[in-house]
C-alpha cells in the first residue's frame, strides 16, 4: 500500500516518541477533533431531547442532564405526532425505492449492454435528469396531480375497500413522483456497474441462444444483486429525506398523508417559542430509519454517493 511506504518513511524522518511520531499523534488528534465537530450537533440534539425544561435552562447544551432532569416525555409526544407520518413515509419510500431500482436497472441494461445508434443521446437525457432542480418542475407537477389527475376522485371506487383509505391517493402520487425522479440517478448507478461487465460474456450468452430479455433475466440481474443493495440503501435515504415534494404534493402537515419530514418541519411551533427538546426528539425519530440504514450499511451508502 502506498500509505504504508509513506508512513514508514515519515516515521523515520519525524521525531519519534516511543515508536509513534509526533506527526501521527497530531494527525489522530485532528481526526478526533473533527469527529467532535461532526457529532456535536447530533449529540447535543440527543441530550437536549431528554431534558426537562429546568434541566434545559441549567445544563450545558451538550451535556446530558442529571438524574432528575431526564424525561422521555418529549419523545412520547413527538412519537405521537410523527407515527402516522412515519407510516406514510414508509408507504411511499419503500415502493418507490423498489420501482426505481428495477426501472433504473432495466434502463441501464438497455442503454449499456445492448448497442445501438443514438444511445448516447438518450443516455444524456437520463443523466441530465439527475441534475434538474426540482423547482423547475414543481409547479407543473402540482398542477398535474391536483388539477388534472385528481387521483383521489378518480380512484374513489377503491376507498370503500378494506385497508384502503382516501389519502392513499396522495401516497400513490408520491410513489410515482419519487420513482420518476429517482430513475436518472439509479440508471447511472447501474450503468457504472454494467460498463465494467464483460462484453464477451454478454455475447457468449447471446450466442448461446438467449434473447435480450433472457440475458437480462439470467445473466445481468443475478450479477447486479450487490448494486441493488447499494441502490436500495441510497435511494431509501434519499426518498425518505426528501421534503419539497412532500410539502407541495401533500400540502399540509395536518393532511392524513403527511410524511415524517413534513410533520417534523412544523413540530413544536407555538406562540411561546420553539420547544427545542420536542424538536430534537422529533428529529431523531424522523431520522431513525435512515440512521439505522446508514449505520448498518455505511459502506454501501458511500458507494452509492461516489458514483
Amino acid at each position: 500500500m502506498s500509505e504504508q511506504t509513506i508512513t514508514t518513511e515519515e516515521a523515520a524522518t519525524e521525531h519519534e516518541t516511543g515508536g509513534i511520531s509526533i506527526g501521527r499523534v497530531g494527525l489522530y488528534a485532528t481526526l478526533v477533533g473533527l469527529v467532535g465537530f461532526y457529532l456535536i450537533p447530533i449529540e447535543s440534539g440527543l441530550v437536549t431531547s431528554i431534558k426537562t425544561p429546568t434541566a434545559l435552562q441549567e445544563t450545558f447544551p451538550f451535556l446530558p442532564p442529571a438524574g432528575s432532569g431526564i424525561t422521555v416525555e418529549k419523545w412520547q409526544i413527538a412519537f405521537d405526532y410523527l407515527a402516522p407520518g412515519m407510516v406514510n413515509s414508509m408507504l411511499f419510500t419503500i415502493p418507490s425505492t423498489i420501482l426505481c431500482a428495477l426501472l433504473g436497472s432495466m434502463a441501464a441494461y438497455g442503454l449499456t449492454l445492448v448497442d445501438w445508434r443514438g444511445q448516447i443521446a438518450v443516455l444524456a437525457l437520463f443523466i441530465a435528469g439527475i441534475f434538474v432542480p426540482y423547482q423547475a418542475v414543481i409547479v407543473p407537477l402540482f398542477q398535474f396531480w391536483s388539477q388534472y389527475m385528481q387521483l383521489g376522485t378518480r380512484l374513489s371506487f377503491l376507498w370503500g375497500l378494506p385497508l384502503l383509505e382516501p389519502h392513499y391517493a396522495t401516497i400513490l402520487e408520491l410513489i410515482i413522483t419519487h420513482t420518476a425522479y429517482g430513475i436518472p440517478i439509479v440508471t447511472l448507478l447501474f450503468r457504472s456497474q454494467y460498463k465494467t461487465m464483460s462484453e464477451e460474456m454478454i455475447e457468449a450468452a447471446r450466442l448461446d441462444g438467449a434473447s435480450v430479455w433472457r440475458v437480462y433475466r439470467r445473466i445481468v440481474l443475478p450479477l447486479s444483486i450487490p448494486m441493488f443493495a447499494v441502490v436500495f440503501i441510497f435511494q431509501f435515504t434519499q426518498i425518505w429525506n426528501e421534503f419539497l415534494f412532500s410539502l407541495t404534493i401533500i400540502g399540509s402537515t395536518n393532511d392524513p398523508a403527511a410524511s415524517a419530514t413534513l410533520i417534523l418541519s412544523g413540530l413544536g411551533q407555538s406562540l411561546e417559542g420553539t420547544d427545542y427538546p420536542l424538536r430534537m426528539a422529533g428529529a431523531f425519530i424522523t431520522a431513525l430509519p435512515t440512521l439505522l440504514v446508514y449505520v448498518l450499511f455505511a459502506d454501501k451508502f458511500a458507494e452509492g454517493v461516489q458514483t
Binding site: 429525506n241 430534537m280 428529529a283 424522523t286
Partner: peptide, 15 residues
C-alpha cells in the same frame, strides 16, 4: 464524517 449527509435537511436544520 459522512453521517450528516445521510440525514434529511429537515432534521439537520433542527440541530
Amino acid at each position: 464524517y459522512l453521517l450528516p449527509f445521510a440525514l434529511s435537511f429537515i432534521v439537520t436544520a433542527q440541530f
